[in-house]
Design a binder for these strands. Structure first.
Length: 1043
RNA sequence: GGGCCUUUAGCUCAGCUGGUUAGAGCGCACGCCUGAUAAGUGUGAGGUCUCUGGUUCGAAUCCAGAAAGGCCCA
């Protein structure tokens, strides 16, 4: 006996039960033991940031990871199952700051680095544990005891090894870069922090027009515009567009130079002297706004070309301060300009800036304007509103600031990176192109961050100028002064206390305070987690990874950093296949965002839709397009899974009634009817497809094919075969039905087990484990279905497709003639079928007759007499050709035999017609063919196939149809009356003569169908009756339950 | 400015190496079934396959160009 199956399953509750089962039976452990000796499959897990609860977008990638690992494990592969957590970096710090109510680096320092680091670690551990639990709920099987954490000394040491290698090759250097900076928080922001929704707001600033005298040219002045007067103190150049026209304008005794197009707006009353292209201004020198400042000494202010200069605002001449702007800084590298950084971390002017020194930049504007006024450099000011970035923590306006950072030069490795990236199998291929584009264009890798909780860079910069990079903890211990080294972990602040002696000059040197870019942490994973340094043999066994998968942005992040580090260390790619998927959006295609209120949390989602439905949704998604995630789409998935469930539930219900035991029948001894052989052939094709597509990491195709199969199984095979399960005698037909359905279900759930591990397990336990004591304890311990050798001559699938097509056309014809399926029909005529097709159908014509409720199926070669073919002139073409003779053409066409003409036209032959005594040739495109059903027939065509329904219903068939209608009506009344399916009743009626006749004629049938012990005319006319209409004719019934 | 991708029915998307009258799900309209039943299911309407050229006997599909949108880099 199988366990009875809930008609309305609670998938979520069932999944929890399965989780319990897996845990208590140690199924995952058993799986690992089983495959221990199998071939290896090396999957490398991209670390998930252990900083917040898991989002549904994480669940997408984790579904792939689990799905393909489960598939491989069912093929017998031995896997590592190591999950990873990304533990360090700015985002952890930001969250901890938020948690603590801090909003600046200074508050962290006041709080104490040690406590702060411990808080960060605490947060990471907390969320790693939470994500672990959530992942388990998703059904992800990993060795959760052995997850890797990027904050471990092991990981750090491997990165140190890498950095040392870079340093030895001379790739490591100190350089500058501009950072968005918040002077209130005293901290830089990463580019990623500028992406959010509220980082740019409309702000009004005082914009100034200032005039800077051209050196050695009396009276000539550049007209310059800026919205950030505080940066003028660091001005070193002016930029013009080399191709734009600039005007010399005389006004009030001076000559102003500005963009030609802006003259009317800025100096409408001036006189135009001449215009020159911008390139003629390049190289001119001018007097800077604050030349007297000590910091400005030696700066030669000059005009440089820049094609980004616009004419929409300002003056067409742009003030350049490389220490205060990202673009300015880039230009300084191009034109070798000095970089002046006027303010410190808190926004106070540093020394060397005259009256500004010591003043905070927020209060400097009035003094700056006053000073410019006094020097006669200020033309005018205006209030200017624009989009300006602000700090997302505190709302303070951001400034751009040049800071010192550490870099790895990429040019030396670039060719090898491109070469190795080309060896990777990228899915989709465009991911590989993206990677190549990135590798061609990327700049040097900035690896330092001015933060606290992160990889400590093992860089020691001596005052003598020499740089020492330590390559291991061992080296640190050897060099540490004083020894021995006593620190709990390789993190700040502990590691900062360690000093070494400079190997060149002997001075004591401190570690630089910077920590590392978090992509170093993740990029080293193919080395650190595979024990490259401490167990080289193990590393060689599992390196390189065969498969990785992450979302697309990881191409230039994780995929890149792994490639970079691996090429540096071993000159080869660390992964062979990379599956890239797109972004997860809400159902309307908008990004999910906490502030938009459209975010869906994993816990909520999994609780409402269940893990299987979620996994199916992810697995069916085309990886190349964004996924629109929501409960609506999940509901659709659930309905599909429910169809499978219903088939399963149907099987269990009847198998239990009939005490069917699949182990009692040898599969090979059963003779199977066509439909059974067909569904098994379908299943076999599906197995072949699934193996092929899963093998190519293409889950979407497998999922789609599975949906088609469920459809065929439920809506075709089962619907056509239900009677075989109901009937009481146990013959070979019935045994074959049970056995076939059983085999199909058991194979199918093994096939979909990687996608829906819970549902598959649930069904497997009931269908397999309850009858086979020596079967594997879990569906996930069974092997993946294998295709059987197929008999191609059988061509079961094309034959069935043809039959399905005929039935579809027949239904359409019925619909067109408004004859419901309940009404039997004399015959349907199949026109134009080849002999092969006729043969293919012949054996199965009963299926067609049953489905369409036909008495007879006949074949005809032509549609003569069944369909009228009308030939009409194609007016837009024939109109110009024949003009007023057109009516004659029309008449001539009407006179032709449609059948014959059609054959000619189908062969693209011209048609000869006699018009007013002359023969005229009409080309096929000049004629329109219209098909009309003959009265008494309803036809539907598709391709060369035509089915024609004979719509004449003889009286005896009409009575049969009415009988079915009556049965239907009585069944409905039974239901309305609340009778049980097995209740016996007495039925009394009062009907028209025609219906009364039918009621008598089909009395036996009706009694049987409706479980009526009595069916007779009412003699007591006073009773309350229920009226129904049969084909528009009223009839009254009284139903009584037999007690 | 460079690169990648997308554009097919009201919505979400399939359409492999070019080949009958371009498909599915959802939604909509009208039905069917009532022994899987607060489920299931049929038919239909709806598309100049973004546009313009080209290659070809034949193009949603290949090539070139354009437009719109998205992402990455600068």
């Amino acid at each position: 006996m199988f366990r009875p199956v809930a008609v309305k399953p609670n998938f979520c509750a069932q999944e929890e039960e399965v989780l319990q089962f897996w845990q208590s039976e140690r199924i995952f452990d058993l799986l690992r033991e089983k495959n221990e000796a199998g071939p290896r499959f090396s999957f490398i897990d991209g670390p998930i940031t252990a900083n917040n609860p898991m989002g549904v977008h994480h669940a997408w990638g984790r579904t792939y990871k689990d799905l393909f690992q489960r598939y491989k494990s069912m093929l017998g592969y031995h896997l590592r199952y190591q999950n990873g957590f990304d533990c360090q970096g700015l985002w952890v710090e930001v969250e901890v700051e938020r948690e603590m109510g801090f909003n600046s680096k200074r508050q962290i320092e006041a709080y104490g680095l040690e406590s702060f680091s411990l808080k960060c670690r605490e947060r990471v551990i907390h969320y790693a544990d939470l994500i672990t639990e959530q992942s388990k709920r998703l059904g992800q099987w990993m060795d959760w005891q052995d997850s890797y954490y990027t904050m471990t000394d092991n990981n750090i040491e491997h990165i140190w090894h890498f950095l040392r290698r870079c340093h030895d090759r001379g790739w490591l250097y100190r350089g500058h870069r501009t950072m968005p900076w918040c002077i209130r928080c005293g901290t830089s922001l990463s580019q990623h922090e500028l992406v959010g929704t509220d980082t740019y707001i409309n702000l009004t600033h005082t914009a100034v027009y200032l005039e800077l005298p051209v050196l050695d040219r009396n009276q000539e002045r550049f007209l310059v515009w800026t919205t950030t007067p505080w940066t003028l103190s660091a001005n070193v150049a002016l930029a013009v567009h080399p191709e734009l026209e600039y005007a010399y304008i005389r006004w009030q005794g001076k000559v102003y130079i500005l963009s030609r197009l802006l003259v009317d707006k800025l100096l409408p009353k001036g006189d135009l002297i001449k215009t020159v292209p911008g390139k003629e201004l390049v190289g001119l020198r001018y007097q800077g706004p604050f030349d007297t400042f000590a910091a400005q000494q030696g700066v030669e202010h000059q005009v440089i070309p820049w094609t980004e200069v616009g004419e929409e605002e300002g003056t067409g001449i742009v003030h350049i301060a490389p220490g205060c702007g990202a673009e300015d800084f880039e230009l300084s590298k191009l034109h070798n300009l000095p970089v002046l950084v006027p303010i410190n971390d808190d926004g106070d002017y540093v020394s060397g800036f005259g009256f500004l020194s010591g003043m905070n930049v927020r209060r400097a504007n009035p003094q700056i304007l006053q000073d410019l006024q006094q020097k006669n450099l200020l033309l005018r000011t205006e209030e200017y509103t624009h989009r300006y970035p602000v700090c997302w923590r505190c709302g303070e306006e951001l400034v751009f600031k040049v800071v010192d950072e550490w870099f790895i030069a990429t040019d030396p490795v670039r060719p090898a990176l491109i070469r190795e990236a080309a060896k990777v199998r990228w899915m989709p291929e465009s991911a590989g192109k993206r990677m190549e584009d990135w590798l061609q264009n990327m700049g040097d890798w900035c690896i330092s961050r001015k933060r606290f909780w992160g990889l400590p860079l093992p860089i020691y910069l001596c005052s003598c100028g020499k740089v020492t990079v330590l390559g291991s903890r061992h080296e640190l211990e050897e060099r540490a002064v004083p020894t021995p080294l006593r620190i709990p972990e390789l993190h700040r602040p502990w590691i900062d206390e360690v000093r070494i002696r400079c190997p060149h000059c002997g001075e004591m040197v401190e570690r630089i305070p910077e920590v590392g870019d978090a992509w170093l942490d993740a990029g080293i994973v193919p080395y650190s987690t595979l024990h490259y340094l401490d167990n080289p043999q193990y590393w060689r066994t599992w390196f390189p990874g065969e498969f990785i998968t992450e979302m697309r942005e990881q191409i230039r992040l994780w995929f890149y950093s792994m490639l970079f580090m691996s090429v540096t260390l071993e000159d080869r790619t660390p992964y062979q296949s990379a599956l890239v998927y797109e972004k997860l959006m809400d159902v309307n295609g908008r990004p999910m965002h906490r502030s938009l209120g459209n975010a869906i949390w994993f816990d909520e989602a999994v609780g409402r839709m269940g893990a299987d439905a979620m996994r199916w949704l992810f697995a069916s998604q085309n990886t190349e397009t964004n996924l629109l995630f929501g409960y609506g789409p999940a509901e659709e998935v659930t309905r599909k899974l429910l169809v499978l469930w219903n088939v399963y539930s149907f099987f269990v219900t009847y198998a239990n009634i009939d005490h069917f035991d699949p182990t009692k029948h040898a599969s090979s001894n059963v003779s199977r009817p066509f439909l059974d052989r067909w569904i098994l052939a379908r299943l076999n094709s599906l197995v072949t497809i699934a193996r092929d597509r899963f093998g190519h990491y293409d889950a979407a195709t497998v999922t789609r094919e599975c949906e088609r199969f469920i459809e065929d199984l439920s809506n075709w095979w089962l619907r056509c075969n239900r009677r075989r399960f109901w009937k009481t005698e146990e013959d070979s037909e019935k045994v074959s039905a049970y056995l076939t359905l059983y085999e199909v279900l058991v194979t199918f759930i093994r096939l979909v087990a990687p996608i829906v591990p819970f549902l598959a397990e649930q069904i497997y336990q009931n269908l397999v484990c309850s009858v086979e004591s020596d079967a594997p304890r879990s569906v996930h311990l069974s092997s993946y279905p294998e295709p059987l050798p197929t008999n191609l001559k059988d061509s079961l699938e094309p034959r069935m497709t043809l039959i399905q097509r005929v039935i579809r056309l027949g239904r359409a014809a019925r619909n067109k003639a408004s004859i419901k399926v309940r009404q039997p029909i004399t015959k349907m005529i199949l026109v134009g079928f080849t002999l092969i097709e006729q043969e293919a159908i012949q054996e199965l014509s009963n299926i067609i007759k049953d489905e369409l409720n036909l008495k007879e199926l006949v074949y005809e070669q032509t549609a003569r007499g069944l369909q009228e073919i009308l030939l009409l002139p194609n007016l837009p073409i024939l109109g110009p050709r024949f003009g007023k003779h057109l009516p004659a053409i029309r008449t001539a066409l009407m006179g032709l035999s449609g059948e014959k003409a059609l054959l000619l036209l189908q062969d693209q032959q011209p048609l000869s017609v006699l018009v007013e005594g002359e023969e005229v040739l009409l080309q096929p495109e000049e004629i329109l063919v219209q098909r009309l059903d003959q009265p008494g027939f309803a036809a539907e065509a598709e391709g060369h196939i035509l089915v024609v329904l004979d719509t004449y219903i003889p009286p005896e068939l009409r009575r049969e149809g009415l009988a079915r209608d009556l049965a239907h009506a009585i069944q409905n009344l039974r239901k309305e009356a609340g009778f049980k399916v097995e209740d016996r009743i007495r039925t009394y009626f009062q009907a028209s003569p025609e219906l009364t006749e039918v009621l008598h004629e089909y009395s036996l049938y009706l009694k049987k169908e409706t479980l009526s012990e009595e069916l007779s005319a009412m003699n007591d006319s006073g009773r309350t009756t229920q009226q129904v209409e049969i084909d528009g004719i009223p009839v009254h019934f009284v139903l009584e339950k037999v007690v």
